[in-house]
Amino acid sequence: MVLLLLVIGAAVALAFVAGRRISWATLAHNQDAMTRWVAAHPVAAVLLFVLAYILTAALSLPNATVLTVAGGLLFGTVLGCVLTVVGATTGASLLLVAARSALGDTLVQRGGGLVTSVRDRLQRDGFNYLLALRLVPLVPFWVVNLAAAVCGMRLRVFVPATVLGIIPDSLVLCSIGSGVGGILAEGRTPDLSVLFAPWIILPLLGLAALSLLPVLLRSRWGTHA
């Protein structure tokens, strides 16, 4: 038991250090070495990437976007997206569970008033509102996780809404990553404004609106009942 706690503690410490070191410059400097290592150790590379993403999501570390792009660079668009969704959903679920424990008060205080605001919506609308928040990520990923935990959302609702909601953005970022090698080699930063291009954001807004349609209908019926 003591050994397990030490391993977990070491993993958390490593994640904090690594999370602060993840940057475009680091990715550019090491992309050739990482690509060769992934080719030589494909299974280990997949497991390490998923673990890194789980820790990043669970600990609300910065630069998850860079990690997602790195997934596309190292594994291609489709596999990178799958690994990102698995890691992000697992890490978010762990954060959800942790926020219900003794860590809950500390985590909620970190989120401040924004967590409380989102929590109120999630308490009323559950799956539909969470899906909308995931599809159009105007609220930080970790804030939504904490708000879902505070309102007592169950994993059977949280997990499918998270998976469905983060697939589009993950797919776009991994697609950028699959062709970003030359840009990084030239010392330039990838242009992520494509996420807000009309052909990306308008369909996502449409899907988010559809996900909230049952909520609006229930509200209308409830008002006239």
Rank of each mutant, 00 (worst) to 15 (best):
L173F: 13
V118H: 04
R154L: 10
L135C: 05
N128T: 08
F141D: 08
S178T: 14
R110A: 01
L133H: 07
D169E: 15
V118P: 04
I167T: 02
G111M: 01
C151R: 11
R121T: 13
G126T: 02
G111F: 03
L122W: 07
G177C: 04
S117L: 00
A132N: 03
C174H: 06
V118N: 02
D120G: 09
D125T: 10
G113C: 00
V139T: 10
C151G: 15
I176F: 11
N128M: 10
L130Q: 13
V144Q: 09
P140L: 05
S175A: 15
V157M: 09
G126H: 12
A161K: 03
V115L: 06
V159H: 07
V108S: 01
R134T: 02
G179M: 09
I167N: 03
R156G: 01
G111K: 03
D120H: 12
R110N: 02
D120R: 11
V144G: 10
G177N: 05
R110P: 02
A148R: 05
P140I: 08
Y129S: 14
A161W: 03
V180E: 11
C174R: 04
L107A: 04
A148F: 03
S178I: 09
R121M: 11
A148I: 08
L138T: 15
R121C: 09
A149E: 08
D169Y: 15
V108I: 07
Y129R: 15
V115C: 01
S170A: 13
W142E: 11
C174E: 04
V172G: 06
C151T: 12
L114A: 01
L164K: 01
D169W: 14
S175W: 15
P137M: 10
F127A: 03
V136W: 10
Q109F: 01
W142Y: 15
L171Q: 05
T162A: 10
S178D: 12
N128F: 12
A149R: 08
F158I: 12
A132V: 02
T162C: 14
I167A: 03
L114Q: 00
A148C: 11
L114R: 01
I166V: 14
P160V: 02
G165Y: 07
Q123L: 11
V139F: 08
V118F: 03
A148G: 13
V136G: 06
L146D: 03
F158P: 09
V180H: 11
G177T: 08
N145E: 10
G112W: 00
C174W: 04
C151M: 13
A147N: 06
G177A: 05
S175R: 15
R156T: 11
T162S: 12
V150E: 12
R119K: 05
L171M: 05
S178G: 12
R124I: 06
V180Y: 04
